[in-house]
Amino acid sequence: MSATPQERLEVSISINGRRYKAPVEARKTLADFIREDAHLTGTKLGCEHGVCGSCTVLIDDAPARSCLTLAAQADGHRVRTVESLTEGQELNGLQRAFREQHGLQCGFCTAGFLMTATALLEENPTPTRDDIVETVSGSLCRCTGYQTIIAAIEQAAAEGAADTQKHDEQEGDVL
């Protein structure tokens, strides 16, 4: 299958348990689909070339750069964004740990860190400091100097805060 960049393709993507169906240009990135079509703006774009990690989301539970993924590539897959993390109207354990450890300042990169750390804690609920640093070093932060982010993920792990409950998909078309 090949399409010109402007050609429209029908995609169907589950985001945070809701199914979004829309015709999109073949060149449209998943990040732009999440932000513009699903109107979930918690996912941020810091570089749009796959380095900074701000746009990290989970595709089928694995962290991925949504700026380097086309919406069409996510067709039929499950995506989780930062908006999925809260437990009702409360911060989850990882988010709470970021707040208590002062693991964010401007908050622009934070969604990427939270999603990468979520995937880490789901896969390995008791990571060592080295595990954390190795996994999360792919994300850039310009405010904190990183130590408080490490401390936050350590705290979340110590409190067993991994949100291992993956959302069940709700049926029904949103778009």
Partner: peptide, 19 residues
């Protein structure tokens, strides 16, 4: 004192200019 800004920013509810 914990920051009052954080719950919004941590839950993806910050509103930055691109948003």
């Amino acid at each position: 004192v914990l920051r009052s800004e954080d719950p919004r920013l941590l839950s993806g509810r910050g509103q930055f200019i691109a948003d």
